[in-house]
């Protein structure tokens, strides 16, 4: 390949790599946003929407960067709102619905611990922008992680009913955790370049940490051999279409509208 082709291939991989990270925050932020005004109490409602806002803020930094890397004329809004389902590269975990409060907390908990490890490692990237974003994010994610972990413990070690609900949510969501540690071709290219984080290496500390908290919450740690994956390659669960139709509605109805 000529160096121009190589350069263009590198950009393409980098953009995909950014989607792989940013789309998690975007879709989870959207899911949390659905709870605005519906949180079980005022405080949790505000907390979840604050977390949502943090995530959207992070998304903006990522998409502004992706727009900058891209050779095409695109804006952060185009990237957030005008891609098709197959072009979103978030993990399946974050698109799972707010079945009940335990599900929202379980999803958050399982994601936050991964997010924290990812942002910790990303501070060592050779890419300055990634380092800057990670240094900013890690401060916010620390609060998210503390919030969701506290609630897992509170519900798990709470009443018989809260325990059962928390257990059900963890049992159900556990099958989406393995995907967090899978890599795509774009990921591998970025890892090789010293730009991306090798998520495979985060797996052990993730399960160790998550297991310790579940045990503290007096919950059973699911034993599972079969895991579900696909989101990172753009193959989503049936929930994704509904999320996008709601999320993209304004932009598709009123093209060019701004955040």
């Amino acid at each position: 390949m000529s160096s121009k082709q190589e350069d263009s291939r590198f950009r393409e991989n980098k953009i995909k790599y950014i989607y792989g990270i940013a789309d998690n925050s975007l879709i989870l932020g959207q899911r949390l946003g659905e709870l605005t005004g519906h949180g079980p109490t005022l405080e949790t409602d505000i907390a979840l929407t604050n977390i949502s806002l943090d995530l959207f803020g992070q998304v903006r930094s990522y998409f502004q960067y992706a727009a900058q890397v891209s050779e095409a004329e695109v804006t952060e809004d185009d990237l957030a709102f005008l891609r098709t389902e197959r072009e979103y590269l978030n993990v399946l975990l974050v698109e799972q619905p707010n079945t009940d409060f335990a599900y929202s907390i379980g999803r958050q908990f399982l994601f936050d611990h991964f997010h924290f490890l990812l942002m910790t490692e990303m501070q060592n990237s050779k890419d300055e922008t990634f380092v800057a974003i990670a240094k900013k994010c890690i401060k916010e994610v620390s609060y998210h992680k503390r919030f969701s972990s506290d609630w897992v413990k509170r519900l798990g070690d709470g009443t018989a009913e809260s325990k059962e609900k928390m257990q059900t949510a963890i049992d159900d969501l556990w099958r989406f955790t393995d995907e967090l540690f899978q890599t795509t071709e774009a990921d591998e290219a970025m890892i090789e370049a010293g730009v991306g984080v090798d998520v495979k290496a985060l797996k052990e500390s993730y399960y160790k940490k998550v297991t310790a908290i579940l045990e503290e919450a007096t919950l059973e740690v699911p034993e599972l051999k079969y895991f579900q994956k696909g989101g990172k390659k753009g193959i989503h669960t049936e929930h994704m279409g509904f999320i996008l139709s709601e999320m993209q509605y304004m932009q598709r109805t009123y093209p060019g509208m701004k955040w």
């Binding site: 505000i46 907390a47 916010e140 609060y143 919030f147 506290d150």
Partner: peptide
């Protein structure tokens, strides 16, 4: 502490 998140982030 009532809530880790208040009126703003």
């Amino acid at each position: 502490l009532v809530s880790q998140f208040g009126s703003t982030a």
